[in-house]
């Protein structure tokens, strides 16, 4: 894979949120939200970032968008380091990278018609030409019509609202879209509409997606590669096909076997994890998953596991020999 194909590269990305306490608001500790996120996203592909709450997957999205500044590690976009961008450069970068949040209702100003919300964004980025005409065009792109421009967010159905949020993101002609649980608040039938739309948009306009989700079924449907995170560390990454067929990390296996399959009597592996992820205020010095791992070995309690390449483009952070 040549470097020019790579849209986004994360190298050892870290994000620690300080915990302040006491009268003087001194930093008394950190929430180690992300401790090692390392992966590449190729132009025009969809990479899924999978994990449970507390895995740090959403924080990775915020850091990529520079809504949060990284504590450590590096982020490259089209080969350029972006962690230190400011002012105009940051704005230019942000117009290339857009974000769609989980809750479409909450991510829109309740007192603004779609028209004003979309045109405001285009104007803020000094997009030339007839912005209204562009807004109509974008609405049609996401399967809405001109008439919807005159609605307030609460006047739309859940699916239409998520389409509107996507439209707003598209209004800046982005190259890269971060989708943070884009369908988690939607019903099955509507989720399918949004997923179909996202796929079609990618096919037509070549957007690159980073899909952040806990829903493995959605991952399998839409993504070409998958990164699994646990408590701030990536633990396994590979192509989606390979990961679903021959996952290696015990956590990935457990995740896969926890997904309820809509087929009564379906045969599946039976791994039910015990316990819950521990508090992220302690920094992991060993394998972060050791606390719940059903296949734990003595060495897991001694040293941080190595990163192994099992096959081309299939990496795992685990002591198990595969």
């Amino acid at each position: 894979m040549s470097d020019s194909d790579i849209a986004l590269r994360l190298e050892g990305l870290q994000k620690w949120f300080p915990i302040t306490g006491g009268l003087l608001q001194k930093t008394v500790g950190y929430v180690y939200a992300v401790d090692d996120a390392t992966f590449d996203i190729k132009k025009g592909e969809t990479v899924a970032l999978v994990g449970e709450s507390g895995s740090g997957k959403s924080t990775v999205g915020l850091v990529i968008n520079q809504l949060e500044r990284a504590t450590g590690g590096r982020i490259f976009y089209n080969g350029k380091e972006i962690s230190n961008l400011k002012g105009k450069d940051l704005n230019a970068y942000r117009s290339k990278i857009q974000m769609v949040f989980q809750d479409p209702q909450a991510s829109m100003d309740p007192r603004m018609r779609l028209k004003d919300a979309i045109i405001e964004v285009m104007k803020a980025h000094r997009i030339e030409g007839d912005v209204y005409k562009k807004a109509v065009e974008i609405m049609e792109r996401v399967g809405l019509s001109e008439e919807h421009l005159y609605r307030y967010p609460h006047e739309l159905s859940g699916g239409q609202r998520q389409r509107a949020v996507i439209a707003r993101a598209l209004s800046l002609n982005p190259e890269f879209i971060i989708l943070d649980e884009p369908t988690a608040s939607l019903d099955v039938s509507v989720q399918a509409q949004v997923l179909e739309l996202l796929r079609e948009l990618q096919r037509k306009y070549g957007y690159t997606y980073l899909l952040i989700t806990h829903n493995l079924a959605v991952v399998r449907y839409i993504s070409s590669r998958t990164v699994v995170m646990y408590r701030g560390f990536w633990v396994e990454k590979s192509t989606t096909k390979r990961l679903f067929k021959s996952a290696a990390h015990p956590y990935t296996l457990a995740l896969l076997s926890s997904v309820p399959i809509p087929e009564p009597g379906a045969v599946k592996r039976d791994i039910i994890l015990q316990g819950e992820p521990s508090n992220p205020t302690k920094r992991a010095t060993l394998c972060p998953f050791a606390e719940r791992c059903p296949l734990i070995m003595p060495i897991c309690k001694e040293k941080m596991p190595p990163i192994r390449e099992l096959e081309q483009d299939h990496f795992v952070r685990c002591w198990l020999e595969h």
Partner: peptide, 21 residues
């Protein structure tokens, strides 16, 4: 329609949405 709209984690499957609201 619901069954067709479900993405599956256990196999590769195409999905088809139910139009309308």
């Amino acid at each position: 329609g619901l069954m067709r709209a479900l993405p599956r984690a256990d196999k590769d499957a195409q999905i088809e949405s139910i139009g309308g609201t």
